[in-house]
Design a protein around this nucleic acid. Structure first.
Length: 212
DNA sequence: CGCCAGGGCCATA
DNA sequence: TATGGCCATGGC
């Protein structure tokens, strides 16, 4: 099932080459900024840095000033502290994701989860898109899509993640594009106010069936 | 005006 | 383990 859903999405959208970011560091910051927030508001925040969204620059400005830059993304007080903590942690690798090569994925994940403001989803995004590790991401869209398709899904985050990671090959490129496809598709058709009328997957979705 | 968005933390039972 | 309140801006 997981493979056929992927194939349907792939046939529609192809290879998306995510995450949308200029650098690995910008990707990580974006992962925090997008928490419960639209991507448009993340772009506004990133634009506020005018090209200076680097760990070196973030280190030298105050948390208050950082909070001011990211104001458009909401929750800016908490997110500013999280970005500060993340940046400090990233510094232990010299701000280069490649320097973490000899650290196994689970250790990296646990380290990320210790940072305040980084939960499981954000940690998995960072592992997958910045550190290029095969760590499947479960977000609100992933959960919603599979529920709406009519496939039973586990409640707990790790249980749901394990379904993907045990049934699919541990392939970073596959996990990357799968999550990208889910988000790109869902943000257009599977919001709380759905657009099943124009959805290319409506023919095999129980939810769309009821809504059409 | 109210609802919602690519979460996470903390208190509570 | 599982809810509920809270954090906050901007688009519709």
């Amino acid at each position: 099932m997981l493979v056929s859903v992927y194939n349907m999405l792939y046939d529609t959208y192809g290879s998306l080459n995510w995450w949308p970011a200029e650098t690995d560091y910008e990707m990580m910051v974006g992962a925090i900024l997008t928490q419960n927030t639209t991507w448009v508001n993340v772009e506004k925040s990133i634009a506020n840095f005018k090209g200076k969204l680097t760990p070196e620059y973030v280190n030298q400005i105050s948390t208050e000033r950082l909070a001011d830059y990211i104001r458009p993304s909401g929750f800016y007080t908490q997110k500013a502290e999280s970005i500060k903590a993340l940046t400090e942690w990233f510094g232990t690798f010299g701000y280069v994701t490649d320097n973490a090569e000899d650290v196994d994925t689970n250790s990296l994940r646990e380290a990320l989860l210790e940072l305040k403001g980084i939960g499981k989803e954000t940690a998995d995004c960072i592992l997958l898109y910045a550190f290029k590790r095969p760590s499947f991401v479960i977000d609100a869209y992933t959960r919603r899509i599979f529920e709406r398709l009519g496939l039973g899904v586990p409640t707990g985050y790790d249980d749901f993640r394990q379904v993907f990671m045990s049934l699919l090959p541990k392939d970073q490129g596959l996990y990357n594009n799968y999550h990208a496809l889910i988000v790109e598709h869902a943000k257009t058709y599977c919001n709380k106010v759905p657009k099943c009328e124009e959805c290319p997957l409506a023919s095999c979705c129980k939810y769309a069936e009821k809504h059409l």
